[in-house]
Amino acid sequence: MPVQFPPALQPGQRVAIVSPARKISAAELAPAVATLESWGLEVVLGESIAGDHHQFAGPDDLRRADFQRQLDDPSIRAILCARGGYGTARIVDGLDFTAFAQQPKWVAGFSDITVLNSHLLALGHASIHGVMPVLFHQEGGELALETLRRALFGETFQPIAVPAHPLNRPGTATGALVGGNLSLLQTITGTPSQASFAGRILFLEDLDEYLYHIDRMLLHLHRSGQLAGLAGLVVGHFSQMRDNTIPFGVTAEGIIDRYAQMYDFPVGYGFPIGHEADNLTLVVGQEVTLTVNDAGARLTA
């Protein structure tokens, strides 16, 4: 299925900020709103930004209706997810992408928003895996924010190069990007939100997981056949990993290597993607080339 790309943003257009997962206040978003306005955009805050239902940005029905409203509004040219957390998978099945398919727009976020990134790709639409408004102004995140701006406004993808890593597997592969947060990719396996990995370059990241969870999730992707057809693998941040009293005995990267060794695609470690300030933007569905050699690994488009 060919992937459709939304038109690039233009100054003067309207964008919406919504929260399909964890709650957030308008005050927390004020700096991000100012930044978006400095890019020449008009910002609309969705009803979920004021939502408050336990840890969620309002009940499921409210968050779903808010997202649907932005999907259906032709004046909204991009939907920025305010933050992650947990909750997007609870609302995605109730969303209707009929109007969106007639006039696609950018949907941007990462972490829990992997559900939407994957769901849209399964429907044949590109989206953005990148820094979210609550994190726009992290120290050290200036380049991450700039790469988001570049993606939204249709500017040329800048190659991402990382140093050599002892676990890298050399080779060259070309394919469309798919992936995101490992925990969410496992969660949506076997659902309508699961996008095919076949012939594509998978990128992975995760946060605050036990090492045995990483193994269990990768085992699931392996046993369900999702890793078998990969063109290549890009490994991002695996941040704040946890361990049991009796250690698992292998790092997250070592666990990934165990499963990667079962296949023959190129693998590049250490990419600035995930839950760190240097979370560079990737366009899910964009065709890229992964090159891994003695000098390191590189993504180009």
Rank of each mutant, 00 (worst) to 15 (best):
G171L: 09
G171V: 02
T172K: 12
T172G: 08
T172N: 10
A173E: 03
T174E: 13
T174K: 13
G175I: 02
L177M: 13
G180V: 11
G180P: 09
N181P: 05
L182W: 04
S183W: 03
S183D: 05
S183R: 13
S183L: 07
L184C: 05
L185K: 14
Q186D: 12
T187S: 12
T187W: 09
I188W: 06
T189S: 00
G190P: 01
T191S: 10
P192F: 02
S193P: 04
S193R: 06
A195L: 09
A198L: 07
G199E: 00
R200L: 01
R200A: 01
R200H: 02
I201T: 04
L202R: 02
L202M: 05
L202K: 06
L202W: 05
F203P: 10
F203C: 08
F203L: 10
F203G: 11
L204N: 08
L204H: 08
E205I: 13
E205R: 15
D206I: 10
L207N: 14
D208S: 12
D208G: 08
E209F: 12
E209C: 14
E209P: 06
Y210P: 07
L211H: 10
L211K: 12
L211F: 04
H213N: 15
H213L: 15
I214V: 15
I214H: 14
M217K: 15
L218T: 03
L218M: 12
L219M: 11
L219I: 00
H220N: 04
H220I: 00
H220S: 05
H220F: 01
H220D: 03
H220G: 00
G225D: 01
G225C: 10
Q226H: 02
Q226E: 00
Q226A: 01
Q226I: 00
L230F: 05
V234C: 10
V235W: 13
G236H: 13
G236P: 12
G236Q: 14
F238V: 05
S239G: 13
R242E: 03
R242C: 03
D243W: 06
D243G: 03
T245E: 14
T245S: 12
T245D: 11
T245Y: 11
I246H: 13
P247F: 05
F248R: 04
F248Q: 09
F248Y: 15
F248S: 06
G249E: 14
T251C: 04
A252M: 10
E253S: 06
E253C: 07
E253F: 14
E253H: 14
G254A: 02
I256A: 01
I256S: 00
I256K: 03
D257Q: 09
D257A: 13
D257S: 08
R258K: 10
Y259A: 01
Y259K: 01
A260R: 02
Q261R: 14
Q261N: 12
